[in-house]
């Protein structure tokens, strides 16, 4: 079945229906791993300064779609794509795209916190250094600003030389977000950012996302449907490579139009 995503905000009771401009647009996007088609004619809009959640069972293609948004899939040799993903009006799959510059604008946070085995300071300064920032005062400013944006500065300001690997899981994940923020991206892609964290740490990262979305556009892949319901404004439900339904989160979780979405979010799938 090829149910087209309905970006329909006309349903009654959708008071938060004001949509901003598109930051990322996925247009008729197919992705193949060799002969296996992992994404089938996916079309959707990621709206600026909103959190868009992608949900669906394992193997539905949600992480593949997320990774396609900053061309992380390029690292896999057998990957082939058709269609477009448009960032601020430009197709990121166009041959002229500078992939490194793209990944600076569209950064990713992973499932397991993956700080470098370096100090807290050097973790955050890594990106800016790689992009050519050398002077100590400038780096220090970026590190402070980035750590503040993830609410780690007050805790860690006297321990910036500590090994990042000694931090708690939640702090490590915050540090990874700070490392990303340090290169001033525009879009944050989060692939199961809380699945290695306990419930309280999860809530803290969710709260952080609410703060970050004032400045960034966020796309999150999550297995936790309640998390999608809590943090996102838009939700897409994927199944076997299809984007079955896409719309306002509050509508998807109260009045989904597709039976497959209904079955999945009410715990009847499988």
């Amino acid at each position: 079945m090829t149910a087209k995503p309905t970006v329909n905000v006309s349903s009654s009771g959708s008071s938060t229906a004001l949509r901003g401009p598109a930051k990322l647009e996925v247009k008729d996007f197919d992705l193949f791993y060799g002969s296996f088609q992992a994404l089938k004619k996916v079309s959707m809009q990621v709206t600026e300064r909103r959190i868009t959640a992608l949900i669906g069972p394992s193997g539905c293609g949600k992480s593949t779609l997320l990774r396609a948004m900053n061309r992380m899939n390029d690292l896999i040799p057998s990957v082939r794509t058709t269609g477009e993903i448009v960032l601020d009006g430009k197709n990121i799959y166009a041959p002229a795209t500078d992939v490194e510059a793209l990944r600076k604008r569209v950064g990713m946070v992973f499932q397991r916190p993956n700080p470098f085995p370096l100090s807290v300071f050097d973790n955050v300064a890594y990106g800016p250094r790689a992009h050519g920032l050398r002077n100590r005062a400038g780096l220090r400013d970026v590190v402070e600003k980035s750590l503040r944006s993830v609410d780690l500065w007050d805790t860690l300001k006297d321990d910036l030389d500590d090994d990042a690997l000694t931090l708690s899981g939640e702090q490590q994940q915050r540090l990874c977000i700070a490392r990303l923020v340090a290169v001033e991206p525009e879009v944050l892609l989060m692939d199961e950012p809380c699945s290695a964290l306990d419930p309280i740490a999860t809530m803290k990262v969710e709260e952080l996302m609410q703060k970050l979305v004032e400045q960034y556009t966020i796309v999150i892949v999550t297995h936790n449907m309640q998390q999608a319901a809590r943090v996102s404004q838009d939700t897409g439900f994927m199944l076997l490579g299809d984007l079955v339904e896409f719309g306002l989160t509050e509508r998807i979780f109260t009045r989904p139009t597709e039976k497959k979405t209904e079955d999945y979010i009410s715990g009847r799938y499988g």
Partner: peptide, 9 residues
């Protein structure tokens, strides 16, 4: 149970 969709309705 955190009901959703039709169950919630």
């Amino acid at each position: 149970r955190q009901p959703a969709a039709r169950d919630l309705r």
